[in-house]
Computed example of a mutant assay.
Amino acid sequence: MDVITTGKAAAEPATGTPAAPTRPQAARRRRVPPLVLNLIALALGLGVWALLASRGVGDLPGPVAVGRRAGEMLGDGTLEGDMLASLRRVFTGFALGTALAVALGFLMGWYPVVRGLCEPYIQFFRTIPPLALIPLAIVLMGIGETPKIFVIFLAAFLSSVVATFQGVVDVDRTLIDAARVLGAGDWTIFRKVVIPASTPFILVGMRIGLGSAWATVVAAELIAAQEGLGFRMQHAETYYDLDTIFVGLIAIGVLGLVMDRLLLLAERRLTTWQERR
């Protein structure tokens, strides 16, 4: 009897003594907010950059010099004009490419006939870098805005269509069968089951396509452009103007990061049902 009583006393915490926090609770308490980590990473990056510039590594300009040059370009309106021009081209090409990719990806995933007809062409053109089509785009479309937007459109389209197609194909068959048992038709299943289940894939494809669009815009603006971040960087290269080149690089990175964060916010709003880590 004494042994049993002692065992119970050992198993139960003493009155008034708080129980030790479980491991998940301790992990939550120690978790550092992502914004704080981002600021720390930014500070470290600037510090390393300033250190390398002070040591004269590769004639690298320092953050102060680049910031001064950015202020000059903002003052005369050059930077705003270039950012708006590049943003307009990227957004137009990305929006058109993503819209077509989502529509075609759904058709390929839902209808085997469409998949068989289109998949060979999709896989073929995925192996050709969009930049390799710039000479052809110039010959066929001239030197206006159309070829610039076309190569950006192609980069976004090829990145998004495969993700959308894979999202539709990977929808759990059990969900579709359950909906059919409950009397749902094809359109209802497509709208209520397939689209929500494939949304995470679509948004990931859009984020990849956005990165491809920004990676393509610099080369696209070589096509007889008179403004744009890519054009300004190429022009600065002629005069070995490293400060201007760095301003262009940082501007592209900031714009791309802001657009990516907006897509990430949309993903969280549209996929609230998805379990996250």
Rank of each mutant, 00 (worst) to 15 (best):
P147D: 08
L158A: 02
A156Q: 04
P129G: 09
V171P: 02
G116R: 10
A41R: 08
R126G: 03
I138W: 09
T78N: 06
T92Y: 05
T174R: 12
L87P: 02
V114R: 10
A53S: 13
P61L: 05
V64L: 14
V48T: 05
P63H: 15
L136W: 13
G109F: 00
T98M: 10
L133I: 09
V168C: 10
M73D: 12
T78F: 12
M108G: 09
V168A: 05
M83E: 06
A53L: 12
I149C: 03
S159E: 14
I134L: 14
V57P: 07
A99K: 10
L175T: 03
T98K: 05
Y111G: 11
T164H: 02
D76Y: 05
L175M: 08
T78V: 08
V114Y: 09
F124R: 05
G47M: 12
G144K: 06
E72P: 02
L133P: 13
P147R: 11
L158N: 03
Q123C: 00
A132R: 06
R115M: 07
V113C: 00
L104N: 02
L84I: 15
D59I: 01
E119S: 10
S160Q: 11
R68L: 12
K148G: 09
L44V: 14
F125Y: 15
V151N: 01
F94S: 14
E119N: 14
V102K: 05
V171K: 02
I122L: 10
F153E: 01
R69C: 01
E80V: 10
V102Y: 03
G62V: 10
L84E: 02
Y111T: 10
G167A: 13
T127S: 14
A137R: 10
A178P: 06
M141W: 11
W110A: 11
V66A: 06
W110L: 11
G45H: 08
G142Y: 06
Q166M: 09
M73S: 09
A155E: 07
A53H: 06
A41H: 00
L107H: 05
E145A: 09
A179Q: 09
G116I: 06
L107I: 09
T127A: 15
V169K: 15
E145V: 04
A179R: 08
P135C: 04
G93I: 01
L44M: 12
G56M: 00
M73E: 13
V48S: 01
A50G: 06
A163P: 04
G93Y: 07
F125H: 02
I40N: 05
